[in-house]
Amino acid sequence: MKGYIQNIEKIAVENTAFRQVLYTAKHCQLVVMALKPQEEIGAEVHTLDQFFRVEQGDGEAIIDGVHTTIHAGFAIVVPAGARHNIVNTSTVPLKLYTLYAPPNHLDGVVHRTRAAAEEDTEHFDGKTTEGR
């Protein structure tokens, strides 16, 4: 079957990896993330657009210096070029998923921890899930 059809809320809530790429299409990429208590994604700027959806936990979204409290059910859209960060401000994991448009990471990559993600220099290589 082409495409990706799954219960993303269940997958996001059950995910324990800092970052896991679930599906890569030609123009977008689906990734789940889990931030430990007080952990953050890390301030970054992309040349692509990014969407986040919070499925569990509480935190803060920071876009170009504007801080907004977030919790389950919140959606965040970060336009290309905006400096952004997501911070878990709670005592339980913050579970979310994100869409990069276009893709940003190697298809299928899993970073169990933020440290592992920061050490890895991987970037999208043009290969999609169905093209592997």
Rank of each mutant, 00 (worst) to 15 (best):
H84C: 06
R83S: 13
A12Q: 01
L48S: 14
A12M: 07
V78D: 00
P102S: 08
H71M: 07
N104Y: 12
G59A: 11
E119G: 13
A101F: 12
I5W: 06
A61Q: 09
A34D: 00
T47C: 07
Q50N: 08
G3S: 06
F51H: 11
P93A: 09
T69I: 09
P102L: 10
T89Q: 08
I63T: 06
Y97D: 04
A116T: 01
K95R: 14
G57Y: 00
G65H: 06
E118A: 13
N88T: 05
I76T: 02
I76F: 09
T98P: 00
Q38H: 13
F52N: 07
E55K: 09
R83Y: 02
E39K: 05
G42I: 08
A75S: 14
R19L: 15
Q56W: 01
E119T: 02
I11K: 08
V31D: 03
F124W: 15
T121L: 12
F74W: 08
T89E: 06
I86V: 14
A80I: 02
N88H: 12
L106E: 10
D64G: 03
T68V: 14
Y97H: 15
K127C: 05
L35F: 14
V13W: 03
K36I: 00
T98W: 00
V13H: 02
H105Y: 13
I8T: 11
Q6L: 05
K2Q: 08
I41M: 10
N15S: 15
I86L: 15
T91E: 13
H71K: 15
I63V: 15
N15D: 07
G59E: 03
I8L: 15
V77P: 00
A101H: 02
G65S: 07
M1N: 08
R132I: 10
N7D: 15
V21G: 00
D125H: 02
A82V: 02
R53M: 14
H123Q: 08
V21E: 01
I41V: 12
H84W: 05
L99D: 00
P79E: 10
N104A: 14
V109G: 01
T24C: 11
H46D: 11
C28A: 10
I63P: 00
T47G: 13
V92M: 12
F51V: 12
K10I: 01
V78K: 02
H67R: 15
Y23S: 04
R132V: 10
G108N: 03
V92A: 15
L48A: 15
N85D: 14
R112G: 01
V66D: 08
E130I: 07
N104L: 13
A101K: 01
R53Y: 15
E44W: 08
L48C: 11
A34S: 15
G65N: 05
M1V: 11
H27T: 12
A82Q: 06
I8H: 06
Y100S: 13
T121Y: 05
T47N: 14
T69D: 09
G108H: 09
E119D: 12
Q38R: 13
L94Q: 02
V32S: 06
H46V: 06
